[in-house]
Design a protein around this nucleic acid. Structure first.
Lengths: 343, 343
DNA sequence: CGTTGCACCGCAAACGTTTACGGTGCGATG
DNA sequence: CATCGCACCGTAAACGTTTGCGGTGCAACG
C-alpha cells in the first residue's frame, strides 16, 4: 500500500495525495477529505524509509542504555519510568522513542558511532556518562542533537540533566552529623561513571565543613548491587574503628547491607545508620525503612524530552530554551534507618 | 558522505562501490581493497533509509515492552538480561535490536500496529502476552516474523517461548504438601496476562492431585509489586483460617509479604511458608532467603533470537527449525522460606 | 585471425516519499 | 472582452541505495 497505489485509486496525482496527508494549504478541502478517508480505508501508512530518505529526518529518537551489571543495578524500574516520561512528550510531536541497548560485549562508544552514522535517529539520549566520555565529543562534532542523563567533564557545551548528588551527599552528611555521627562511611561505585566523583567530592567537602577528617579507609567502592552492598558492609564491619553510619550512592546497596548486618546479629539503623539514594519500591519495603530521597523519574523523562527538543531546530518554536543544564533536586524522605546515635 | 561521493573520489561507478562493499563476487579484488580502504578512511557508512527503501528490509528487529506498572514489576534487570542474550546472537548477523517501549498512555495493540505499518522493523518480539492477544493475529495476518515471550490462546501457529509456570506451580504445591502444608494460598496477578491463567490452573490441578479442596478465598489477585505483596499478605492474615503457605507468581511480591509478616511480628518461613518464582538479585537477598527458581534470562534471550531468525526466510539456512514453541524449565533453588510445617 | 568465454565494470531503473515549479481553469477586474 | 490573480493540481526531480543488464577488454581457443 504505497502512496502511488493510493493515488491511482483516487485518480489523482501522487503529489496531491502527499500534500493532502501532510496538511499543506494548497489543496482543496474536499479532496483532502477524500484522501484522508481513502487512506484510512485502505490502511495506508507512509513508508518510513521513503520519507526519511527524502527529508533527511527519521522522527525517531534513540535512547542508549547499557545492559551491563552497573546499569542493571539501577535495577527495578528506573529506566521504564524515564521512558514513560519521555514518551508523554514525544507523543505530542509524532516522535518515536527507540531504546538502543548496548550489549555487554560491545563498546559504548562504538555503539553510539554505529547508531549515528547509520543515520538511524534524529536525536539521542545517552546515559551512564563517564567522567571523560568520548561519546559526547563525537556527538557534538557530528552535530546531532542529544541530551545526556548525567554530567560529564567532556568537551563542549551540551544539554544534560543530572540528579543532585552533591545535595544528597552534603545533606546526608549534615543530617548524620546532626544526629551525633562523626565516623561516616561512604559506599560508592567503582566504575568510572562521573557521578561517583561528584558524590565523593561532595562527601569530602561536607565532612570538612563539619570539621571531620577524611579517612580513605571508610570510603568504599564496589559493585552497586545487592551483592556489592553485602561486600562493602563486610569490609566496614571488619574495620578496627567501625563507622557508625554510611551514605549510599545507590539504594540497591542497602539491601545487601541490611542482610550483612542481620547476618552479624546487628540491626540496621540502631547499629549502623544508613542513608540511601533514591526511594525505589524495594527501598520502601526494607525494614526498618530506609531513609532516602524522593525523585520522580517520570518527570525526569519529561524534562529530558523537552530538553532534547529544545536543541533541535525543528522544534525551536515550541521549546525555545536552547541548551540547558539541570540538576534535579532530590528531597529527603526520612526513614527508620538513621536514628540519632545512641538514641 | 554518500556512496556517490565515495565513488567519484575513487573515480569508479556507484554500482561498483556498492558491489565491493557488499562482498559480491564480480569485482576485482584489487578495486575492492581500494574501496574498502577509502570507505574506512572517509568514514563512509551506508545510509539506512536508502538501503531499506531499495531492498525492503531494515535489518532492525524490534522488542516491544510496556512501561506500565505490571511490567515494571519485572524490573529493568529482567529485560536487560534478555536483551543482552538477544544481542549476542544478532551481532553475528549484523542485525540491530531496538526496544520499543509502549507508554502507559498508549494501547499495546495500536503500538504494534504503528510499528509494523511504518515498516520499521523486519521482525518483532512481543512480551506480556494476553490470554487473547490481538497483536498476535495482526502479526500473523501481516506476515511479519515474530516471537512472543509468553504463550497466548490467540490465533494461529506461531513461535513462542515461555517459562514453565505449570512446573513451578505444581512443583511448589507438591513440595509444600510434602512438608506438611495443606492450606496453600496463591498470590497471582490481577492482569489479563496469560500466565496468570496458566499459573492458577496448574495450582488447582496440583491441589486436586493431592486431594486438597480448592478454596477461592485463598487465591489472591493483585498488583505484582512489593506493595501488592503487602496487600495480599494483609488479606491472608485477616482470614479466619489462615493459610500456612503461599506460592507466588512473582518474586517482587515476596518483599511485600516479608514486610507485612514482620509488621505483624511474624517470621517468613516459620509462620508462613513462601515459594517465589524467579531467583532475582533482590530475592537472593531476602532474609530468610527465598525459595525460588533458577532461570538464565540471558539464555532466554539467546533462544528468543534464534527462534525469531528461524521464522525469517533470509536466515533459514542458518536456523532451519522453523516455528518453535518452547517452555523454559525452571529449577527450584531451595531457600529458608519454606521449612517443614511445625519444624 | 575470428570467435567465444570470462572477469570486471558502468548504466540506469527502481524503491516511496516530498516539494519546487509550472500549468490549468475560473472568477474578478478594468 | 482581455487581463490578472488565485486556488488547485500535475510533473518531475531528488534523497541513497541495490541490482539486472549490457558493454568493454582480454585471454584462450579452434
Amino acid at each position: 500500500m504505497s502512496i502511488k497505489a493510493l493515488a491511482q485509486h483516487l485518480n489523482i496525482s501522487i503529489g496531491t495525495v502527499s500534500r493532502a496527508l501532510n496538511g499543506r494549504a494548497d489543496v482543496n478541502p474536499e479532496t483532502r477529505k477524500r484522501v484522508l478517508a481513502a487512506a484510512e480505508a485502505l490502511g495506508y501508512v507512509p513508508n518510513q524509509s521513503g520519507r526519511s530518505l527524502r527529508q533527511g529526518t527519521t522522527n525517531v529518537i534513540g535512547f542508549t542504555i547499557e545492559t551491563n551489571i552497573e546499569t542493571k543495578s539501577q535495577g527495578d524500574t528506573f529506566f521504564m519510568s524515564v521512558f514513560d516520561g519521555v514518551q508523554t512528550v514525544f507523543a505530542r510531536h509524532q516522535l518515536d522513542l527507540v531504546v538502543l541497548p548496548c550489549s555487554s560485549e560491545d563498546d559504548p562508544f562504538d555503539h553510539v558511532r554505529r547508531v549515528v552514522s547509520r543515520q538511524f535517529v534524529d536525536g539521542l539520549f545517552i546515559s551512564a556518562t563517564q567522567r571523560v566520555d568520548p561519546r559526547i565529543d563525537f556527538l557534538i562534532e557530528r552535530g546531532i542533537p542529544f541530551v545526556t542523563l548525567g554530567r560529564s567533564q567532556s568537551g563542549g557545551e551540551h544539554s544534560w540533566i543530572d540528579m543532585d548528588f552533591e545535595g544528597v551527599a552534603a545533606g546526608a552528611v549534615a543530617r548524620l552529623v546532626a544526629r551525633g555521627h562523626r565516623r561516616i562511611a561512604l559506599a560508592n561505585t567503582a566504575s568510572g561513571i562521573n557521578l561517583s566523583y561528584i558524590f565523593e567530592d561532595s562527601y569530602r567537602r561536607a565532612l570538612a565543613e563539619h570539621g571531620i577528617d577524611y579517612d580513605p579507609d571508610i570510603v568504599m567502592r564496589g559493585e552497586i548491587t545487592e551483592r556489592g552492598g553485602y561486600a562493602i558492609c563486610d569490609r566496614l564491619l571488619a574495620l578496627p574503628d567501625r563507622p557508625t553510619a554510611v551514605v549510599l550512592v545507590n539504594e540497591s546497596l542497602a539491601i545487601g547491607i541490611y542482610r550483612r548486618l542481620h547476618d552479624a546479629g546487628l540491626m540496621p539503623g540502631r547499629d549502623m545508620a544508613i542513608i540511601g539514594l533514591r526511594q525505589s519500591p524495594q527501598a520502601r519495603f526494607l525494614s526498618p525503612t530506609l531513609t532516602c530521597h524522593r525523585l520522580s523519574l517520570h518527570d525526569v523523562g519529561v524534562e529530558l524530552a523537552q530538553s532534547l527538543l529544545a536543541t533541535m531546530p525543528a522544534y525551536r518554536d515550541h521549546y525555545p530554551q536552547g541548551v540547558t543544564q539541570k540538576i534535579w533536586p532530590m528531597e529527603l524522605v526520612p526513614g527508620e534507618s538513621d536514628p540519632p546515635l545512641g538514641g
